[in-house]
Design a protein around this nucleic acid. Sequence first.
DNA 1: TTTTATTGATTGACCGTTCAATAAAAAAAT
DNA 2: ATTTTTTTATTGAACGGTCAATCAATAAAA
Lengths: 195, 195
Amino acid sequence: MPKVGMQPIRRRQLIEATLEAIDEVGLADATIARIARHAGVSTGIISHYFDGKDGLLEASMRHILGDLGSAVSERRRALGEAPAQAHLHAIIDGNFDRSQTSRSVMKTWLAFWASSMHHTNLQRLQRVNDRRLYSNLSSQFRRVLPKRQARDAARGLAALIDGLWLRGALAQEGLDVERARQLAYDYVREQLDTP
Amino acid sequence: MPKVGMQPIRRRQLIEATLEAIDEVGLADATIARIARHAGVSTGIISHYFDGKDGLLEASMRHILGDLGSAVSERRRALGEAPAQAHLHAIIDGNFDRSQTSRSVMKTWLAFWASSMHHTNLQRLQRVNDRRLYSNLSSQFRRVLPKRQARDAARGLAALIDGLWLRGALAQEGLDVERARQLAYDYVREQLDTP
DNA sequence: TTTTATTGATTGACCGTTCAATAAAAAAAT
DNA sequence: ATTTTTTTATTGAACGGTCAATCAATAAAA
């Protein structure tokens, strides 16, 4: 079994197992024993590849953030010089991408949000992400709206996206992605139409 | 020192201490020893008055929920038959009441949200609250809008409120209550104006 | 022979709960 | 009015349990 080049495989396995464990019992009870069991390996391996539990958690958050970044930028890359509305819709779609709307990922996001209030490394990651969303939205609104209005529209849309997402995570029925996107689209339209 | 009638006093003290501890180190590290120290009592007292830590946490969440309910209903009581917009503004104002926008309360909210995904008793409390916000908003929009439109407006506004709140809790600068309220007002206006 | 991969028992720290002990007020009895 | 009993309040050490981290041992590839 053991040979060279296991690192990337194990790391992916363990991150996936982390999300499963958090989905199953929450971050507070996602022990390394449970995570290791999900991945089908021993506990020692976690320290070996991630320098301990904290390292694994940070890597897991980075992983989700990476997926989000990809989901957004892939959609936008095809757009080029398209109108602001198209870019705004792409950003919305990216935020409601399948990779971000599974139960386990939404739960993990929520757990990391709460946790980031007290762990500076997670906090840093989360803030980079927050700002990126805001500044992407802001610069697109800025193409069609005066500065103050663009800023408010960006703040509002960012909050609406996060709020839809949060309520979807908490709701029994889960997140209705189609309806959420539609509500966000409506917000964009109203912001762009209003003179 | 010891005499009769300590129960309500200790309960309030311990709930307050819980919020302080969560603000200080987060729910995960808010041990009963730390909470008891904040309240200036011994650890045993927590089990005595709350049947253990879980009971205290649930009571703390109930306390915050109670404050929120009061903040909203007090504002609305004075309104009577006032137009829908006035009621909607009152609901918004209640949700951004001082009792709900302090750092410690916002942090605690976020922690409880994450925790409620895996503790059915907290989940119940949180869902009752979610539904109340939605149904309050919905019934007010229903006075001026057709059913589907009212439903969507309520969903959107609920998400916007929660999202503004969430981003305020996570942001370095904290929540700018005045600006948040204004964005929510704007959303209401756009929903009511659009025919 | 060296390097990489992996295991899992052990260790040390910590946490929530329990409970016997203590103290003071309230209630009952004298 | 005084003593006795009961009730309420509180403490904090002791206990049982859990967890993350460590590390010596093992095994297979390089």
